[in-house]
């Protein structure tokens, strides 16, 4: 009889423990898991870097930025200056004097293809027809509701079959090495400079791929 009761109690006991844990687990897992705070932290000083990260503010400099520009007139090792200025005459001169140092190989073309799709196709379109995704009608639905997004002015097509003309004279399908490189380096009107995103070698690979598109 007594043993029986103990067994009963054990069962009850286990049951209540399970119920309690289940409830606790349910209660403590509420919310969508996103928070505005970092929560509890322990020994913060082991997380913070001792050396400065490039994107950290820095009291040691006048403009409080860690990533300083190199002093004017200095060249980092291996850095080649682009000798053409940002003007129409210099653009024409680059078109005449500058040619690609890279050989046309399958590898360079494949790289140029990938780079073009990442850096240029948003505006120029995957085939260079000037029909990138941001030049088309499209809309977004978010916390501010559904609204149409602004369309970017479409650039002229590179393709020979479209016979579009460059705004600086001549046909888009006949832009030379130097003119395209100059455009990547300085941008032109609504197109910004892409020099900070592409290294000189990558720029030439893109130029090579643009020539492929011009043939279409």
């Amino acid at each position: 009889m007594k043993e029986n009761m103990l067994a009963m109690n054990k069962k009850n006991f286990l049951g209540s423990v399970c119920a309690a844990f289940a409830l606790a687990a349910v209660v403590s897992s509420c919310g969508d898991g996103k928070t505005r705070s970092t929560g509890w932290e322990f020994s913060r000083n082991m997380y913070d870097p001792i050396a400065f990260n490039p994107d950290q503010p820095n009291e040691n400099f006048k403009n409080k930025i860690t990533a300083q520009l190199p002093p004017a007139g200095t060249n980092p090792i291996g850095f080649e200056r682009f000798e053409f200025a940002n003007s129409l005459e210099e653009y024409e001169r680059a078109g005449r004097e500058l040619t690609s140092p890279l050989a046309v190989t399958q590898e360079n073309l494949a790289k140029g293809d990938a780079l073009f799709h990442t850096y240029c196709a948003v505006c120029h379109g995957p085939e260079g027809k000037g029909d990138g995704p941001i030049t088309k009608e499209r809309s977004v639905t978010d916390s501010r509701g559904t609204r149409a997004l602004e369309t970017f002015p479409p650039p002229p097509s590179y393709q020979k079959s479209d016979a579009a003309s460059s705004s600086r004279g001549g046909a888009m399908s006949e832009l030379s090495d130097g003119k395209i490189y100059h455009t990547i380096y300085y941008g032109h009107n609504s197109m910004g400079s892409h020099a900070s995103q592409l290294s000189p070698e990558e720029r030439w690979q893109v130029v090579m791929y643009v020539h492929e598109l011009q043939k279409k």
């Binding site: 844990f21 606790a24 403590s28 898991g33 928070t35 970092t38 929560g39 322990f42």
Partner: peptide, 25 residues
């Protein structure tokens, strides 16, 4: 028992999540 279990689960979760910023927005 409920109270103890609740505190235990909450404490356990909190301790495991010290320094874990999952969901930080």
């Amino acid at each position: 028992l409920m109270l103890v279990a609740f505190l235990a689960v909450a404490g356990w979760n909190t301790l495991w999540n010290v320094g874990v910023h999952q969901g930080y927005e």
